[in-house]
Amino acid sequence: MVEFIGNMAAVLTTTAFLPQVIKTLKSKSTDDMSWSWLLMFITGVFLWLIYGLSINVFPITAANAFTFVCLVILLFIKVNNLFKSR
């Protein structure tokens, strides 16, 4: 039961982030995302990913790997928008 709860938490928190990524990909707008939020979130998720790998727990590793990829996509769009606006 505890493993099921962990798996569901990983699936829900990870997939809840996906609509934001899709919206950003469609709109190409990252104006509402602060740099500090994005960098802090990427760092935190990366550390969770390292933690999940180090203790070999699949839900933590998979959820944070997926979220990390989503955040890198958002970071790429934000950086790209920064250079386009100059």
Rank of each mutant, 00 (worst) to 15 (best):
K28M: 06
K28D: 01
K28A: 04
S29V: 01
T30R: 13
T30V: 14
T30E: 11
T30A: 07
D31N: 08
M33C: 05
M33P: 04
M33A: 10
M33F: 10
M33R: 05
S34A: 11
S34F: 06
S34T: 15
S34I: 13
S34H: 11
W35Y: 09
W35V: 10
W35R: 07
W35S: 12
S36F: 13
S36R: 15
S36M: 14
S36K: 14
S36P: 00
S36Q: 15
L38S: 07
L38D: 03
L38E: 05
L38Y: 05
L38H: 06
L39K: 04
L39A: 00
L39Q: 04
M40P: 01
M40L: 10
F41M: 11
F41W: 06
F41D: 04
I42L: 12
I42N: 06
I42G: 05
T43C: 13
G44C: 01
G44A: 05
G44D: 03
V45G: 02
F46M: 09
F46S: 06
F46D: 01
L47K: 01
L47A: 09
W48A: 06
W48I: 05
L49W: 01
L49Y: 03
L49D: 02
L49Q: 05
L49C: 04
I50N: 04
I50E: 03
Y51W: 07
G52K: 14
S54N: 15
S54R: 15
S54Y: 15
I55Q: 15
I55H: 15
V57R: 07
V57M: 03
V57H: 09
V57Q: 06
F58I: 14
P59Q: 12
P59G: 08
P59D: 13
P59H: 06
I60L: 14
I60Q: 02
I60F: 11
I60A: 03
I60D: 04
T61V: 08
T61N: 06
T61C: 07
T61K: 10
A62Q: 10
A63G: 13
N64L: 09
N64H: 08
N64E: 14
N64T: 09
A65I: 01
A65N: 09
F66Y: 00
T67L: 12
F68C: 10
F68N: 05
F68A: 13
F68L: 11
F68M: 06
V69E: 03
V69H: 03
V69C: 03
V69R: 00
V69I: 02
C70M: 05
C70F: 00
C70N: 04
L71C: 09
L71Y: 00
L71F: 00
V72D: 05
I73C: 02
I73K: 00
L74P: 03
L74Y: 02
L75Q: 13
L75D: 14
L75C: 14
F76Y: 05
F76H: 04
F76V: 14
F76K: 12
I77R: 10
I77E: 03
K78D: 10
K78W: 12
K78M: 14
N80T: 11
N81M: 09
N81I: 08
N81E: 15
N81H: 10
N81F: 12
L82Q: 08
L82S: 08
L82T: 09
L82M: 08
F83R: 07
K84D: 15
K84V: 09
K84F: 12
K84E: 12
S85A: 15
S85L: 11
S85N: 12
